[in-house]
Design a protein around this nucleic acid. Structure first.
Lengths: 143, 143
DNA sequence: TTGCAATATGATAATGATTATCATTCCAAT
DNA sequence: ATTGGAATGATAATCATTATCATATTGCAA
């Protein structure tokens, strides 16, 4: 999925004849915040970041993330410790994670785009994003 | 990674000159149970299943799953509701999940094997398994 | 075989991220 | 301006997972 970078309302970029919900100020604000992060963030971390700018409740963060996820604007992945990390849907960010120490190394390549496109045609799903993660043991832990 | 199906001790199949820990009775039992499941199961579900055969504590299930994961014998994935599902590492099981209703459709193809092999060489990781998941909205929910 | 040390197990309490609740506030359309 | 519905905040509740700790089991050496 391709996302125009500086679209007024980012939703435009992915809506394809869908009903067009407007983002609330809070949701837009969260999306902006997320788009300026170099790393995926947990809801709690976002809470900390955003609260420095404006008063906002934790529950609102969770709800906004859920909404944005449903709109295909935000994607998630789950760490080994069970926290969910969120990021704006822009590029692919895939990881190689050590099951032992938990360190995650971002990957460059993503061979999944083609399959995604193919699935889009084959299945009856409208595909928003995907996760691809490798798990193993890193050199340091390989003892 | 290829796993001989009826190996005495399944660990043999993936150990490649590693220190060779023996599985405890409980761990082996859990692995057997998992290998006979057609679907990935949560720890709690495994607790329910295994308890019908023999007395076993929930904490033991979690510990055994962790151990087997570190040995490369068991893999995990996390559902939208936050529960972790475990399965024996045998085949690839990838999914297409609806963000709205949560339904998961298993996929057939897996284009990741080559990349995995490549990564094995490039990175300093010993790769055990990977997850590949697509998220979107299914036809029914596409309102 | 006996005894010791290390590891595994069970039961249960504690943790912590996420959700549900509910009263209040904001918005859009009448 | 008024009203109905959605959004928000604060907080309590939920629930999978972890930590704790006492007990049981195993591996190993004498």
């Amino acid at each position: 999925m391709i996302l125009k970078k500086d679209a007024e309302n980012s939703f435009e970029a992915v809506s394809k004849g869908q009903p067009k919900p407007r983002l609330t100020a809070g949701q837009q604000s969260l999306l902006d915040t997320l788009q300026h992060q170099p790393q995926p963030l947990s809801a709690q971390a976002l809470y900390g970041v955003m609260r420095r700018q404006q008063p906002i409740g934790l529950a609102t963060i969770y709800r906004a993330l859920e909404t944005l996820k449903l709109l295909g604007l935000v994607q998630h992945r789950v760490t080994l410790t069970g926290e969910t990390l969120y990021s704006a849907v822009e590029h692919d960010h895939h990881y190689l994670t050590c099951l032992q120490c938990g360190v995650s190394v971002p990957l460059e390549t993503c061979p999944v785009q083609e399959l995604a496109a193919q699935l889009q045609g084959t299945s009856s799903f409208r595909i928003y994003y995907h996760t691809l993660e490798f798990f193993g043991v890193c050199e340091g832990c390989e003892g």
